[in-house]
Design a protein around this nucleic acid. Structure first.
Lengths: 205, 205
DNA sequence: GCATGGATATATCGGACCGATATATCATCC
DNA sequence: GGATGATATATCGGTCCGATATATCCATGC
């Protein structure tokens, strides 16, 4: 699913400018999508070329003109075809987890900062979802999917936050202990041989 | 964090070829990272240019030669600097959730297939994590980060799976009900005006 | 005996896209 | 009056993902 499809889907809820779409994505798709201007504006231009959207220049006093896009029937069909047939990928790309995987290489201050920042970030995102759900008209049939997706996000992020809270202390103290042991190795260290790493990636040959 | 950094980190666990790295990423970083050959091989070439890794051609009978990479001290330093200073992003990109957001446009069969496939996928990933944790030497100090990260993945994915299982039926029946209502609208429909969409993206002006 | 498919192994290319940046105007705040 | 931030559109470079090409070996099956 490309940014073009994102735009088609959003426009199925009503006309909007590129700027509107960016804000909509940030508020509503926040926890599972990102799209910057650098993707949205070219996408809209291509969609207009393909006849899947139309637009009208809307001039407003003072402000720069808005280019307001409108979904055509062909665009609606294309979007439905897309969501009916695309393989639904779900991908997490996390520097956060990658960094924590190497917790043994981090300074204690950095480790704690990384954990605390992530917890705070999750709190903010959960608050955003709460706002988003509250502001929606629940009785409207169109919101069943939105409600489900926001519920999913809330469940997943709550679980993540709880895990971080419950295991933060353990990780910090374990890393601290390992550091101390490296600094003052009082036990036997006969395991260490210069050329044999602890966790070889490939199996012995 | 770029693929180059991924490679540096993985090589800190021992020498490996590009092929080894791909497999390592798939097994161990599965739930928070992806990197294809198209990213790994160019990354390794650049790292070698910069002196952060070295390599030796290892010829094996029959098989094509392996190019085995080795982390240099400079490479190790560069990696530690990277994880100490990079802002730890965490991003979810999910066609799955996007499609479900538009559940009201899906056929019932498609909706159920999407949900079931995702649940099965989560089961597979959870199994992968379990294997990964079992195969590791828990007493080794280097694995505290890995253990934490895998625990995180297990917690998050279990929560996601549970949510899907618990809410699958509700979503399917709600979408079904909405479809039926559209097909046989017996109640008043005075809300529908041709040009006023149900969920306008931008506020009224 | 041999074809088929899968694992091992490296490499390239195009298209997509994210982030930074540029530009412009108006409202608001100090 | 000047700084900041919101509104609004657009472009560009660097990065990366997916598909594809190439080559050889091993196991499986017919």
């Amino acid at each position: 699913m490309k940014v073009k499809d994102l735009c088609l889907g959003a426009l199925s809820f009503g006309d909007a400018s590129g700027y509107d779409l960016k804000q909509f994505f940030e508020q509503t798709f926040n926890h599972f999508c990102v799209a910057g201007f650098g993707s949205i504006y070219p996408a809209l231009a291509e969609l207009a070329n393909e006849g899947l959207v139309t637009y009208s220049e809307e001039q407003q006093q003072g402000r720069q003109d808005r280019r307001v896009y409108h979904l055509t029937p062909a665009g609606h069909e294309a979007f439905v075809r897309e969501i009916e047939t695309t393989e639904p990928q779900h991908r997490v790309k996390s520097d956060f987890l990658l960094i924590l995987y190497f917790a043994h290489l981090l300074s204690p201050e950095r480790l704690e900062a990384v954990l605390d920042n992530r917890i705070a970030q999750l709190d903010r995102q959960l608050e955003l979802i709460r706002q988003c759900r509250d502001s929606q008209d629940r009785s409207c049939a169109v919101s069943v999917g939105a409600d489900f997706v926001h519920g999913f996000g809330a469940a997943a992020m709550s679980a993540a936050r709880d895990y971080l809270r419950n295991n933060r202390g353990r990780l910090v103290s374990e890393v601290q202990a390992a550091r101390n042991q490296r600094a003052h190795p009082h036990s036997t260290q006969r395991e260490r041989t210069a050329s044999r790493p602890a966790h070889p990636i490939r199996s012995e040959d």
